[in-house]
Amino acid sequence: MTSLTAICAAFVTGLLLLIIGYIAIRGFSSINFQFLTDTPKPVGEGGGIGNSILGSAMMTLLAAVIGLPVGIAAGVYLAEYGRNWYGNTIRFVADTLIGIPSIIIGIFIYTLVVLPMGRQSGLAGGLALAVIMIPIVARTTEEMIKLVPSSMREGALALGAPQWRVSWNIVLPAAASGIATGAMLAIARVTGETAPLLFTALNSRFYNYYLDQPMSSLTVQIFNYATGPFEVEHAMAWAATLILVGTILIINVLVRTVTKRRY
């Protein structure tokens, strides 16, 4: 039986290497500087994904600006005050929200933002990503804070520190590196999201610096290129995927290997 379980492990890790290897080979062959900076052009005229990279970056940034503070604050609440029925309810709902398909979040933001505004926008896309981030960040923050030894908390309380001071300048800094790890992984996760952007941010053929306009993203662009009929578009899909997967895997590998436990 041991050999059978080992085969399962080898098979799946092999698949991972196969997928990454394939992306690398297909991707590298169509990447160049122009591709990284140009905007999409009609088929046969080249074009690139510069505006998609910018759009992904802007919407991810917006999501982080909203999602990280709210998520971290919610996590601190769960860790510091959440040992009651209300905390348990929020914890449970947060875990369930993490498992809800991201396309549902897209519909939610569509009804909440896109319909009233009358058009798709980078703002709506960023908000959808923020909603996805909040419960993830909240739960990892809570776990990280729980790792802070209670002796440290008691040390501050014994000095006459009010509860909020203990949380704010002892516990949070002590958990900071763990929270940062969780935040980076959450950012990597939403960078790869496609479904919630399809009809919130839509797409755009141009460089767009305004959040109230439809905005391109790497993931939606990959989807469009991949499902298009032309070979050149498929090649561009692979090249864009290399950029996307490269970014996400680098964040994952760095964050997981660099972070050290302090206690």
Binding site: P69, V70, G71, A73, A74, V76, Y77, L78, E80, Y81, G82, G87, T89, I90, V93, A94, T96, L97, I100, I104, I105, F108, L112, V131, I134, P135, A138, A161, P162, Q163, W164, R165, S167, W168
Partner: peptide, 26 residues
């Protein structure tokens, strides 16, 4: 520090409650 405690807790509570509001909102 009671005032600080109150404000701090209220801000955190608001953030935590946003998770419930999101699900209810959906």
């Amino acid at each position: 520090g009671a005032l600080g405690d109150k404000i701090f807790r209220a801000v955190l509570l608001l953030a935590a409650t946003s998770i419930l509001l999101i699900v209810a909102g959906i």
